[in-house]
Nucleic acid binder design. Structure first.
Lengths: 196, 196
DNA sequence: TTGACAAGTGACCTTTCGTTCACTATAATA
DNA sequence: TATTATAGTGAACGAAAGGTCACTTGTCAA
């Protein structure tokens, strides 16, 4: 009936994989969550692995569109206070957006099993954020907002603590508010340390 | 024959769970890796879940003995250079010790499924290292090695980037050397920033 | 020497898994 | 209207999963 069943399967797979992992997910339950019977799935994907690959394709493409491209770089803030609020806006988005949360969880669970997941995990958890902030911090040095230093090192030192607290939100969602407060406190500590 | 089979099962389970996850591990293969047939396992553990619980008990106890207790706090270093080398010793140990690597991987894979794994994961990945370094940094402030600041915040800012690179080693072991270099570079950057 | 017990085997059980297939209902197309 | 492609059903499949059990073997204490 619905033309978008193929799409809905991908959504449901993201949901289920993120909670139970690939191995822990079974097709019966996945189909049932869509009001289908399991054989119906195979009209849209030839196997469980095909669903996984399609989902990964999707996640990789999404990452490239939204985080990998130069046009999505955040602007260089005009003040240290702007820098904090820009950080908090980004963090809020990444912690509240269910799709993004589930994507991180899936990558966490499958990073040792699937090579592409492994590579994307490194981008999501380590290099991505840092590469995003490197030019921002370089720009802030230009503007005289923070002291001159290695921008890549500063971006690494800035983003990895934030990333650790984002992981905490994924793991223990009830601590989200606390984690966000800690991120803001850390961000302020950072600009106290490096700001001029 | 061997009296320590129960122990060896736990070791093999850690190995297999860390590669394939709990759901992805099957008892036949686990037994085979020990030169047993699967029914032999059930002479020592009543179920797969019992193995999991015993392993988790072990990991929790090990963590409490080696990281949780006050007596295992690292000493306050006498110089900034000592601080760097102490850090590198600890990191090297935690990255090369196969048991510890596998423990982190298991916790990564099972943190969303098992509540106790979740709690231990937060300790391993976030609070543990920071709590270990808080008194060290406080002591360094006392000694006048680094500037006075919130020691807990500094410990957080110091340990989470290191933790992120340790995760990179777990995920992509071929990048271990690079990660260790980056940890040392970060450590030196840290003491340049806060040292006096 | 014998008896008891712990350790290990191999056959078997039930359940669940991913997958296939013949079939039906529906809706668009020729 | 007749045809055809699409989406979905339900029964069935073989493989693999976790687990049980009667049985054998080896060890050691009485």
């Amino acid at each position: 009936m619905a033309k978008d069943t193929k799409e809905r399967i991908l959504l449901a797979a993201l949901e289920m994989f993120s909670r139970k992992g690939y191995e822990g997910t079974n097709i019966r339950e996945l189909a049932a969550s869509l009001g289908l019977v399991k054989s119906g799935i195979y009209k849209h994907y030839e196997s469980k692995e095909a669903i996984w690959n399609a989902l990964l394709d999707r996640m990789i493409a999404y990452y490239g569109e939204h985080f990998g491209s130069a046009e999505h770089l955040p602007p260089v803030p005009d003040s240290l206070e702007d820098f904090v609020s820009m950080t908090m806006r980004m963090v809020n988005l990444t912690v509240r957006d269910e799709q993004i949360v589930k994507t991180r969880k899936v990558l966490t669970l499958e990073q040792y099993r699937d090579e592409r997941a492994r590579d994307l995990a490194t981008k999501h958890f380590l290099t991505g954020l840092a590469e995003m902030f490197t030019p921002v911090l370089a720009g802030m040095m230009e503007k005289g907002l923070i002291r001159r230093d290695d921008p890549a090192m500063l971006a690494f030192a800035y983003t990895t603590p934030i990333s650790a607290l984002i992981h905490l939100c994924d793991r223990e969602p009830e601590k989200t508010e606390e984690a966000l407060r800690r991120i803001e406190a850390f961000s302020r500590h950072f600009i106290r340390t490096y700001g001029m």
